[in-house]
């Protein structure tokens, strides 16, 4: 049984027929062809697949594509606008918030939601809000710095 799904991903309308068991992350990567969203675990721990669905950070590995029918989705590919990096992306670059880059898309989108909810986060808040995103390279130090950088620069822009 295949079912039709329609969604808007990074401003582009997409529609396909998919098996109900197709996870949203596989839909995005294999069917739509956006490979910036990564799969790092099987159990919703690592957060490498974090995307925004209707503005909320969600692990795309723990959702079937059919559940996201009608949704508006932002993946890492859709965050920079007109070639201009989002302040969070810029912060990760400025503060060396990444090494191998595999967890980075999920980290950035988790940070995106974090700064929406807590525009001036404390270090503790940043660390608590990153509970669902694992990084094996950075020891988190520069990720915290990157998010702090972004918070400062986003506050400046508002």
């Amino acid at each position: 049984m295949k079912l039709p799904v329609k969604m808007t991903i990074n401003g582009q309308k997409v529609s396909h027929e998919v098996e109900p068991r197709l996870l949203l992350v596989h839909y995005i990567r294999e069917v739509v062809g956006l490979t910036g969203t990564h799969v790092g675990c099987d159990t919703s721990q690592c957060g490498a697949c974090t995307i925004l669905i209707d503005g909320q950070a969600v692990k795309a590995c723990t959702l079937f594509a059919v559940q996201a029918d009608g949704a508006t989705i932002t993946t890492i590919e859709g965050l920079a606008k007109n070639g201009e990096l989002h302040p969070i992306q810029q912060g990760f670059w400025e503060k060396h918030g990444l090494q191998c880059g595999f967890c980075t898309p999920g980290m950035i989108l988790a940070a995106y939601q974090m700064l929406e909810r807590y525009p001036k986060p404390t270090e503790d808040q940043i660390r608590h809000q990153l509970e669902g995103n694992l990084c094996r390279c950075t020891g988190y130090h520069n990720i915290v710095k990157a998010i702090q950088w972004a918070a400062e620069h986003m506050a400046g822009k508002k």
Binding site: S44, G47, T50, Q56, A57, V58, K59, T62, L63, A110, Q113, M114, Q129, E131, G132, N133
Partner: peptide, 9 residues
């Protein structure tokens, strides 16, 4: 509970 993304869903 879990983490922010888990709490969203």
């Amino acid at each position: 509970i879990g983490d922010p993304a888990v709490r969203n869903k």
